[in-house]
Each structure stands twice: as structure tokens, then as C-alpha cells.
């Protein structure tokens, strides 16, 4: 259960988002909003990247009071991921697997289903944006996260990979009850659309659409 208490995020004196009280139960959520409405800011605040006023709690663990325990439970994939160019894909996976305490070999299923074995031994600097995006998605699924935040997960990857990603999301949610928050301007795939509830970022706040 993800909980917001008097959440306020602003840049300088310009308020971006204000959420007085909101509880997000287990489920798959599609975050909608126009460009610049604050979707990425919301995800990065939940992911522990950005400073904000107020409180965000995950299963009653506060990001501000127990950041280490909180971050163990939250994974994030950026809209446009950037990684050190001299590291290989395998090294990035090993790094995330260690940091997020993944079980040995957990990545194999993801890597094989996305057909990434061919290039993971190459340096990240040589990857196309689609290859980087796939890598970032694999990294977001490592460990035992209670919440997975995916910022624009549908951009730059091919249609075959899109449907594989949807299967990953549905499976992970079904087996581990993981909360998914996805921001996307593209319409979700039909299977996801049936399951997903909509969170609307509008007029500097977040509302659950009925």
C-alpha cells in the first residue's frame, strides 16, 4: 500500500504537485497527464530520487525515515535511461542484482524473453535507444520490489517486446501482488488496459479516475 500524506513538490517557488491524502492499493495503474503535468516528477519522488515536502509511505515505511528499507521495495525505469558507457549490459545487471538483492539467475528469464543475449556483453555506449530501454526494463524487475515505477515504458521498443513487457507486468502483479505505476502517452495493450486503473495528473494534483 502506497500512501501520500501532505505531499508537496515544487521547483523554486513554482508548485508542481500537491497531494493531501491518497492511498494506492495493490494494482496496475496508468498515470495519464499532458506534457509537463508532473508525471515523471511524481514517479521520481516515489522512487526516492527527488526531495519533496510531506510524506510517502510504502507498507508504512517512510522514505524519509528509513530510506534504505524503502528503496529496497521500489524499482524504477527511466524514460530515457543513461548508464556509464564503459560498462556492459551484463555488468549493469550484476550491479542492480546486487543492489536490489535479486536471487541468482533471476535475470535469465527476462534476458531470454527479450532476446538480449546477443548484445549484453557489449559496452552500453554502443547500444541503441531501444536496447537501452529494454535493459532498463530488465533492471526494474530485479529483486523483490513491492512497487515498480515505469516512466514511458512503451517508447522506443519494438512491438514484439511491448507485448512481452505486458506479460511480465501481468505475471509479476499476479504472482507477487506488485504495484505498477506506468506513465504513458501511448494507449496500453488490451490485456493491460482491462486490468489498469487510471491515475490522472491534472491541475497540480493526482486523482484516481472512477
Amino acid at each position: 500500500m502506497l500512501q501520500f500524506n501532505n505531499f508537496r513538490k515544487s521547483y523554486g517557488h513554482h508548485p508542481i504537485l500537491e497531494i493531501d491524502q491518497l492511498v494506492i492499493e495493490s494494482g496496475i495503474y496508468w498515470i495519464k497527464g499532458v506534457n509537463g503535468s508532473g508525471k515523471s516528477t511524481l514517479l521520481k519522488s516515489i522512487g526516492g530520487f527527488l526531495f519533496f515536502d510531506g510524506e510517502i509511505l510504502l507498507n508504512n515505511i517512510s522514505i524519509k525515515k528509513d530510506g534504505v528499507a524503502y528503496r529496497k521495495m521500489v524499482n524504477f525505469a527511466d524514460a530515457e535511461p543513461i548508464y556509464p558507457e564503459f560498462l556492459t549490459g551484463w555488468e549493469m545487471i550484476a550491479l542492480f542484482a546486487k543492489a536490489k538483492q535479486a536471487t541468482p539467475g533471476q535475470e535469465s528469464h527476462f534476458v531470454e524473453s527479450m532476446k538480449m543475449e546477443g548484445y549484453l556483453s557489449n559496452a552500453v555506449g554502443s547500444y541503441s535507444s531501444g536496447m537501452l530501454k529494454k535493459l532498463s526494463l530488465v533492471l526494474a524487475f530485479l529483486g523483490k520490489p513491492k512497487v515498480i515505477l515505469l516512466d514511458e515504458p512503451l517508447i522506443t521498443i519494438d512491438t514484439e517486446s511491448l507485448s512481452i513487457l505486458c506479460q511480465w507486468i501481468l505475471k509479476k502483479h499476479k504472482e507477487e501482488n506488485t504495484i505498477f505505476l506506468l506513465s504513458s502517452h501511448q494507449p496500453l495493450n488490451e490485456e493491460l488496459l482491462i486490468k489498469a486503473r487510471v491515475l490522472l495528473v491534472d491541475r497540480q494534483t493526482l486523482k484516481m479516475e472512477k
Partner: peptide, 17 residues
Amino acid sequence: RFNEKYLYFSRNFPFSI
């Protein structure tokens, strides 16, 4: 600058301050 650009993702890692 390197940390801000290339290791930005690590802010989500469970490492203490």
C-alpha cells in the same frame, strides 16, 4: 557531474547516506 549524469539511477539504490 558523473554521479548526476551516469549514476543518477543509483539514487533508487538501498544505500545509506
